[in-house]
Design a protein around this nucleic acid. Structure first.
Length: 535
RNA sequence: GAGAUCAUAGCUCAGGGGCAGAGCGUCUGAUUGUGGAUCAGAAGGUCGUGGGUUCGAUACCCACUGGUCUCCCCA
């Protein structure tokens, strides 16, 4: 893999070979069709932006992953991290664009993350945004397009979760939390789907404590139960954890409590991972919380109030009503009012509750969202989200011209991955019908080239054989491997008769067609339902 | 940024301190005008990189690089 001089790819990058590239194009073609159908116009922006354009927009966690770029000794440039911030820059620089401005863009973005399933350092986003409208109909339109796009791709199941930043703010106030702890609170509840109520409870109790230690402990449980590490090894590893301000002494006490609790679970036995993890980490948290000043941690009573809130389950509208009553918060009520209007549009266009869900626990990580937020997940395969978006009214203003906007992006690479795993591509059909013009002998090349070209001029895809040494058998083999639909054979016999032998490579049939009728004949094969108009 | 795990032919993988293997694919021929199927044959490898142990390492040990998985975070 890393032999010196051997060809290799940069980390997290990949080539798309013809079949893969065709799958991608199939997806982008479908998406483009949906976007254009709604009147969205394409724009293109540079891959390289000024560093200052990107910084300060996404939040510190995300900005660590921005690729810096520039010539030797030059700095101040960066590869785009998403398509929304460049769009905001474009809008601020081109105030004359007619509003509301509907645009789409499908392009690569770069993030310096650790590659993983469904996660690449270069990937394509398909973005749609509606700039210049504060109205909630704009939000509804974006969500509707996203859901319809996923349906158009043929995904049998996808769930678009909808929430609102203002509702989350209300939940933060309801919890009575210091502002500094709110990001941790949001991160914790966002995991509800994944780790359940018990998991979220534990996450909430850990807010403000060392996340690094918690992470190492989670992994330590797995290593212990699997017999991969003994107590001494784990102790050494856990001691490497950043104490993040709670103090080393407190951290070490917590580690000891953790290891004591963990020791009660036998190694190499069929102990459920979650049970051991729950118990051991809880022991550690109890110690850590008792050693930490109360203003750094979430009170237990708050945790229970939040879990109680998140336990609300109902159809969308009654759920929103119930939330309003609980929160009794003016900003959150503005959010739920918008959500109701969004749902009304979705219902009107026939998007059912099997495709969307109001989910108060869904949080988006990017800092610039301020109103509705949404993201789409698929139940299978487990690949994270395939779309994400929301309203970001303040973002364009950071470039000097305040304009409201709402938008979403779809992850093209993830969509392709999902569709491959679900077997949704008909790969042979991705290759357009193509004829392969064989060559009888090198001397016939000019005549064959002329014949091929006249077919191309008439709109047919034609590959002309270029390897003079190959016999007919080899040429047919090549044609077959390339996925060609027909082979066209013109040798001395055909020339004498003024015919072309057309071999259908799929059905293993061949017929003699008069040269003058060839075009008509092939066209009928491509689109049999369309008959040539009779003269 | 953390932990685990893996790396042998183009692909999927077996093996094992002293001859480098299989299946699939590729190429050639049976067939100089008929692809896929069959048969016969061939090519293809510094066993990821670097170091260590050893008379000898592809194998054992260490480091590095890369893939995958679980976290963190996200499309």
């Amino acid at each position: 893999m890393s032999k010196p001089g051997a060809p290799a790819l940069a980390r997290g990058m990949r080539d798309l070979l013809p079949l893969e590239a065709r799958r991608h194009q199939k997806v982008t073609d479908t998406l483009r069709g949906i976007f254009e159908r709604h009147g969205y116009a394409p724009i293109e922006t540079p891959a390289l932006e000024l560093e200052g354009t990107l910084m300060g927009k996404y939040g510190p966690d995300a900005e660590r992953l921005i690729y810096r770029a520039g010539l030797a000794g030059e700095s101040g440039y960066a590869l785009r991290y998403d398509l929304s911030v460049p769009l905001a820059r474009t809008c601020a620089m081109n105030p004359a664009l007619t509003k509301p401005f509907r645009r789409y863009q499908m392009a690569a973005v770069w993030r310096g993350e650790r590659p993983q399933r469904g996660r690449y350092r270069e990937f394509m986003q398909a973005d749609i945004d509606l700039v210049g409208s504060t109205g909630v109909l704009a939000d509804a339109e974006i969500i509707q397009i996203v859901v319809q796009a996923l349906q158009a791709l043929g995904l049998p199941r996808s769930l678009t979760k909808i929430n609102d930043r203002r509702v989350l703010n209300g939940i933060g106030r309801f919890a009575g939390m210091p502002a500094a702890l709110l990001p941790g609170l949001y991160r914790a509840i966002d995991k509800l789907d994944k780790i359940g109520f018990a998991g979220v409870r534990q996450e909430l109790l850990a807010v403000g404590l060392s996340g690094d230690l918690l992470n190492r402990q989670r992994q330590a449980v797995e290593r212990w139960l699997g017999g991969k590490a003994d107590r001494a090894t784990l102790e050494v590893d856990l001691a490497k954890a950043d104490d993040e301000g709670v103090g080393e002494a407190a951290r070490d006490l917590a580690i000891a409590a953790f290891l004591d609790a963990l020791s009660a679970f036998p190694q190499n036995a069929a102990t459920p991972l979650s049970e051991a993890r729950q118990t051991a980490i809880q022991a550690s948290l109890d110690v850590l919380r008792s050693q930490t000043s109360v203003d750094r941690i979430i009170p237990s009573a708050v945790t229970e109030r939040l879990l109680d809130l998140l336990a609300l389950r109902d159809r969308p509208l009654p759920l929103l009503d119930a939330l309003d009553r609980r929160l009794d918060d003016a900003e959150a009520t503005a959010g739920t009012a918008d959500l109701r209007r969004i749902l009304a549009v979705l219902d009107a266009v026939g998007i059912g509750e099997d495709r969307y869900q109001v989910d108060f626990a869904m949080v988006r990580g990017l800092a610039y969202y301020n109103g509705s937020i949404f993201e789409t997940v698929v139940p299978e395969p487990p690949i994270g989200s395939v779309s994400g978006g929301g309203r970001y009214d303040g973002l364009i203003g950071l470039f000097g011209r305040d304009m409201p906007a709402v938008g979403s992006s779809l992850g093209v690479d993830r969509l392709v991955d999902v569709m491959v795993e679900l077997g949704l591509f008909d790969d042979p059909d991705l290759i357009p019908p193509t004829a392969y013009m064989t060559l009888f002998s090198p001397d016939d090349a000019p005549a064959a080239a002329a014949r091929a070209n006249s077919l191309r001029a008439a709109g047919l895809n034609v590959i002309l054989a270029t390897e003079p040494g190959q016999g007919l058998g080899q040429q047919l083999r090549s044609a077959d491997q390339l996925g060609c639909r027909w082979a066209l054979i013109v040798g001395p016999d055909e020339v004498a008769a003024g015919e072309v032998t057309v071999k259908d490579l799929r059905q293993s049939r061949q017929s003699q067609v008069a040269e003058a009728n060839l075009l008509t004949w092939l066209r009928r094969e491509v689109a049999p339902q369309i008959e040539e108009p009779s003269p």
